[in-house]
């Protein structure tokens, strides 16, 4: 890994220089304490200490919430032309960077999703370190630190940021802006070590995932699923904000009498229609089925990438019924242990 240091006084300058590689998008604030990624025109508006966005940046810039796929005129069809701009996502958290690897696995495996692929190729990712809040459980999922999947990663120092260079693109950027960068000092390394130690000891939520997939599978008939699914509203908020949930629905919209557009839009496995097949059979007819399905999909252990959940805490923060993902898991796990 190649390391550099960005002095704090050059942060805004750094952001402005990034525009050379694309339109800079960064975390910004709306309302009381809601964060979202959006185009950053004024670098002073960046919310560098944000907790988490509503929709993860690593999801919404590659898999658009609503995307036109094709146009029809009568029975003539043409693909929607995708016009992409190069984007620099500044301030992405480690959990989201790790989640993008899971999305990549799905959308870039053959046959590749062309919309995703084009957008993905045009994104530069600048990560930033963070301190866990009450919802974070990324440490339990092993996704609290990004070792790859970024171009640059910034770690907070007392008087600046330690930059990790994670890709040729990252090298290109640091090479070109070397006039505002410094070498990393012994003092900086000490600070980084201290910061990491503090970060790792700040997590308030834990779950032991070593045998979790099996334990959950064995607990298929656990009453815990039932109890929580009675509280669950089935609104799908948890899936919409999830950085690894990627289900979409497609539908046709009339633009005029004879022209229409095929669109895809985020979908959620909490919708009753999600498990329905033609003829009316529903593979997940009850809320319990749907509730459990989400936990199983999130806790699925992929032989290559591990668990499908990165512990970002969004599902908990945005659940109107106050259901806590990790509490449910721990209860199910606890139950099977007979605790």
């Amino acid at each position: 890994m190649h390391y550099k240091k960005l002095p704090k006084e050059f942060l805004e300058e750094f952001i402005n220089r990034l525009r050379k590689w694309g339109e800079v998008h960064a975390p910004q604030k709306k309302g009381k304490n809601t964060y979202f990624f959006s185009r950053l025109d004024d670098p002073s508006k960046v919310q560098i200490d944000y907790t988490r966005t509503v929709i993860p940046p690593t999801k919404k810039y590659v898999l658009r919430p609503v995307e036109p796929l094709m146009l029809f005129h009568g029975d003539r069809a043409e693909e929607h032309t995708l016009r992409t701009t190069k984007l620099v996502l500044f301030g992405v958290h480690a959990c989201d960077i790790n989640a993008l690897k899971i999305l990549d696995r799905v959308y870039l495996s053959e046959p590749r999703d062309p919309y995703y692929e084009i957008r993905r190729k045009n994104i530069v990712i600048i990560g930033i370190s963070c301190m866990p809040d009450d919802y974070c459980f990324c440490k339990s999922m092993g996704t609290d630190y990004a070792m790859s999947g970024f171009d640059l990663f910034l770690h907070e120092l007392r008087d600046g940021y330690l930059i990790r260079v994670g890709s040729p693109m990252g090298h290109e950027i640091t090479w070109n802006i070397s006039d505002i960068l410094e070498e990393v000092s012994e003092e900086d390394i000490e600070y980084l070590k201290k910061f990491e130690k503090q970060r790792l000891s700040s997590f308030k939520r834990h779950v032991d995932i070593s045998a979790m997939p099996d334990i959950l599978d064995l607990a298929y008939n656990s009453r815990v699923w039932e109890r929580y699914s009675e509280r669950c509203l089935g609104c799908g908020n948890c899936t919409l904000v999830c950085p690894t949930c990627r289900c979409f629905e497609t539908y046709d919209v009339w633009l005029s009498v004879n022209t229409s557009m095929r669109v895809r839009r985020y979908d959620s496995c909490f919708m009753v229609s999600h498990g329905l097949v033609a003829g009316g059979h529903n593979f997940r007819p009850t809320r319990l089925d749907r509730f459990r399905h989400r936990y199983y999909c999130k806790s699925y252990f992929d032989p290559i990438h591990g668990i499908n959940c990165v512990g970002c805490g969004r599902c908990d923060e945005f659940c109107p019924a106050g259901i806590k993902h990790i509490e449910v898991l721990n209860e199910v796990i606890g139950e099977i242990y007979g605790r």
């Binding site: 799905v106 959308y107 495996s109 999703d113 979790m212 997939p213 099996d214 959950l216 599978d217 298929y220 949930c245 990627r246 289900c247 979409f248 629905e249 497609t250 895809r264 979908d267 496995c269 999600h274 498990g275 593979f283 936990y295 199983y296 999909c297 806790s299 699925y300 252990f301």
Partner: peptide, 14 residues
């Protein structure tokens, strides 16, 4: 294999 509608299984096998 993208849209997720046909996913079946549990935590050990999807």
């Amino acid at each position: 294999g993208k849209c997720g509608h046909c996913i079946v299984g549990t935590s050990t096998s999807i």
